[in-house]
């Protein structure tokens, strides 16, 4: 992957000035490259990684395994895209193995998730079955640990 994308993946807030220094390019080149990535859709957005456990929100997240029948035209795509449109659905992945789609669904409470599954998801033509697991506590998200621990103190000067 392009080094620029590698850096932005770990810190999307890195300034063009610093990026330019790290990559030995001019700020203008960096800005143009980022604009290009945004335009052609390689960069699809920027988000903060939040530890919701530390907040007083009562959202629940469910991880749902879905079995579906592939359709004659479009295979799994058609249903997957349809499911992706729901705003409570955060992520959708096509999987190999015992089920086909893996969804991450977030909603206000358990009841809402339950009704999403029974009324919206399960009723889609082609969905054969669902298995819903509720997420209890995040430890690591997007490569970032959700709890920081004290750093082991290092020497300040050494040969």
């Amino acid at each position: 992957m392009d080094e620029l994308l590698n850096i932005l993946k770990t810190n999307a807030l890195e300034t063009p000035e610093n990026l330019a220094k790290m990559l030995n390019q001019t700020e203008e080149e960096i800005k143009a490259k980022i604009a290009e990535y945004e335009k052609n859709g390689v960069i699809r957005g920027y988000q903060a990684v939040i530890n919701e456990d530390q907040l007083d929100t009562h959202y629940v997240t469910a991880v749902i395994e879905v079995k579906i029948t592939p359709q004659r035209e479009g295979g799994f795509d058609h249903i997957a895209k349809r499911i992706s449109k729901f705003s409570e659905v955060q992520s959708v992945y096509l999987m190999s193995g015992a089920f086909d789609l893996l969804l991450f669904v977030t909603d206000k409470d358990l009841k809402n998730v339950a009704s999403f599954v029974s009324e919206k998801l399960a009723t889609i033509n082609g969905v054969i079955s669902t298995a819903t697991h509720f997420m209890l506590k995040p430890y690591k998200n997007h490569g970032i640990l959700m709890e920081s621990h004290d750093e082991y103190e290092r020497l300040k000067v050494s040969p």
Binding site: E3, I7, A20, M22
Partner: peptide, 13 residues
């Protein structure tokens, strides 16, 4: 790869 970026950053600075 990480050090190379740090080096570039330090030298540019």
């Amino acid at each position: 790869d990480a050090y190379r970026k740090h080096r570039n950053f330090m030298c540019a600075s």
